[in-house]
Amino acid sequence: MSDKKDEDKGFIERRRQLLKLGAAGVPMVLTLKASATQPVHSALDCAFVIPEKVTILVDVDGKAWVGDGSIQEKQGEYKTKDVDDFKQNADYVFGEGTVPERYRPDGCSTGGGDDDSGDDDGGHGGWGGDDSGGDDDDSGWHSGSGDDDDSDWRTSSSRRGDDDGGYSGGWRGGHGGGDDDGDDDDGGSGGGGWTDCYKVYVISRNTTITPADYLNGSGSWNLQGENGLYILLAGKYLDTYGNDGGFPGISCLLSILNYLETQ
């Protein structure tokens, strides 16, 4: 009551009006949010190195196995025995729907033989199904954040997700190349021999991955190539299991995601 304006009738009246709003539940204190409360640059300044070759096996349902084994490839088909061994020994397994369409094999004509996935998941292979809704956006863990209208220093988001069609041919198979050594006999052995129900991606030893390279200015992921797939799986891992366990790159990715959340 020290303020001399308090004597002013209009002043008291304006206060009474506000009180009515208060009685109706309207908050009386507003907290200003500046647009970036925590510019944690260090969070974005991270990269990680893949110390040893990493192989990622993807099936038609978007399941993925990650390990260090090798899988022989011939004309877009993979040796069934290698695939089975790889799955048995995989270090990480991701459920159905984890991997977006664009990374999955085109079709599955050899069918059948691979339904041995029961080895590690109790037969139903169904445990993926979780948030598969996002199958071909980048699986839901970005926040979109939109407003690309004004801020030049945020840059806009016109290039989201899946405009990578042109690339896909490039990464198929890749390694294991040396063994096109004509043992066609294998090819003939039908059911057990070769399968096209998978696609294999290989990230070579000492590859440096900088997740921030796959982000656009509005915080959407634009994941491409095998490194993009790796980030996607790391993100999925993080989403599901948190920042524990040994999936390389997680802490780097987490710091970026935390950063984006503050935007």
Partner: peptide
């Protein structure tokens, strides 16, 4: 060092069990 720190924190077998349970839960 990163791997080492995680190795220090959690044996691989146990991690696998963790993954396994997650898998079942999500079924």
């Amino acid at each position: 060092l990163y791997i080492r720190s995680h190795y220090m924190r959690m044996p691989v077998r146990q991690l696998a069990r963790h993954l396994w349970h997650k898998a079942i839960r999500r079924a």
